[in-house]
Nucleic acid binder design. Structure first.
Lengths: 201, 201
DNA sequence: CTTTGACTTTATAACTAAAAAAGTCAGAAA
DNA sequence: TTTCTGACTTTTTTAGTTATAAAGTCAAAG
């Protein structure tokens, strides 16, 4: 029962932090505020997490997990690669808007945070694998042709991320206006279109 | 004759600044250093340029002009769109390496600098026009098919710029290692390839 | 018209002190 | 033994200070 309770408490903390982080932002949220929300002491939080960064990463991991599950479900449900990629853009868009205050890019830029580079590398690879699977599936059913689905998937993801940066007026900031968000989405859609066409002989 | 001499002096100043800027960097160069190089007083520089930013922009304009001329010449000389785009990547790569100390991105990010946004907008549009022309030419001779060369060109340029940012470890910094430069170039080449294939049929 | 030395103003960098937040720990509670 | 906390220390941010360097000005000279 100990292990059960322990994980439950961790979960409650992550949940509380997620709420604060998404409403205000990660850097504007203090450990005391999270503790107060849970009617417990700040020291308790440190019993479950070594430091604030670890908690932050756990929050990102939780949001990321939901993101990937949704992506994988959606990808599996679509019959054509084209539809799957478009759905991916849609989901990415929704999550980007919803979780922009989690300061993902800020964490990524911060070299001090232990393991942050690894976690993001894993996330990017997982996203790339989803695209790679979509492409492989497309190749199998004759919709697409390519000798290196993995490499194409990497290029695709990096290009999509790049568009997000190069079209946004703020560059690599986590903040981005709704209008810019829509613009980026438009260009991403067009790029996906060209990719699909480019992978047919 | 006055006008003649005046422009010559402006040119000499820009030349001197360009040397200092490319060797050290724009922000590490002082107006006094430039004046000393020219064996004139700092006040003279202010007779020809309203402030340091104006001089900096003139330097960027000069480098940019050389870049565009080279691009346009190269693009005109290639018979296929594929070759033209590849040559463009090559030229872009060489200029990026050569002029990275001009702090182009830093200037772009600085909202205070008067007209900087306009100048960069013009530069991006000119680059886009070159790509648009390559695409139009490709459409004319049957190499490519698309209903909107302009829009495709915009997407192409933004994607290329985006790859530069998303692949670089430093994000939007002007500094980038030689190794990363080569990596970016590799991915840009692959993306150009997919664009070309995507614009057939 | 062009140039300059001497000048003023503005930005930068290096400290500082005060406040706030992060993080620790001995011991209490369950 | 595991979980929790009040009281504590340490670290980070912030705001304010100064000194220095660089930007920018101007009356007067060439």
């Amino acid at each position: 029962m100990q292990t059960e309770t322990r994980d439950e408490m961790r979960e409650r903390i992550i949940e509380a932090a997620l709420k604060r982080f998404t409403h205000y932002s990660a850097s504007k949220t203090t450990m005391n505020e999270i503790a107060d929300d849970l009617h417990c002491s700040k020291a308790s939080l440190y019993y479950y997490f070594p430091d604030k960064n670890a908690l932050h990463l756990s929050v990102l991991e939780k949001a990321g997990e939901a993101y990937f599950v949704e992506l994988e479900t959606a990808a599996a449900g679509k019959s054509s690669a084209y539809e799957a990629l478009m759905e991916m853009i849609s989901i990415r868009h929704a999550f980007g808007k919803r979780f922009c205050r989690l300061e993902l890019f800020k964490v990524l830029r911060d070299k001090q945070i232990l393991n942050s580079a690894d976690i993001f590398k894993y996330a990017r690879e997982r996203e790339t694998q989803i695209v790679a699977n979509i492409i492989r599936k497309g190749v199998e059913n004759g919709e697409l042709i390519t000798a290196e689905p993995e490499k194409v998937a990497t290029l695709y993801i990096q290009s999509m991320i790049g568009l997000r940066f190069s079209m946004s007026h703020n560059g690599m900031s986590d903040d981005i206006s709704d209008e810019e968000f829509e613009t980026v989405r438009g260009w991403q859609t067009m790029l996906a279109d060209i990719f699909i066409k480019g992978l047919k002989k």
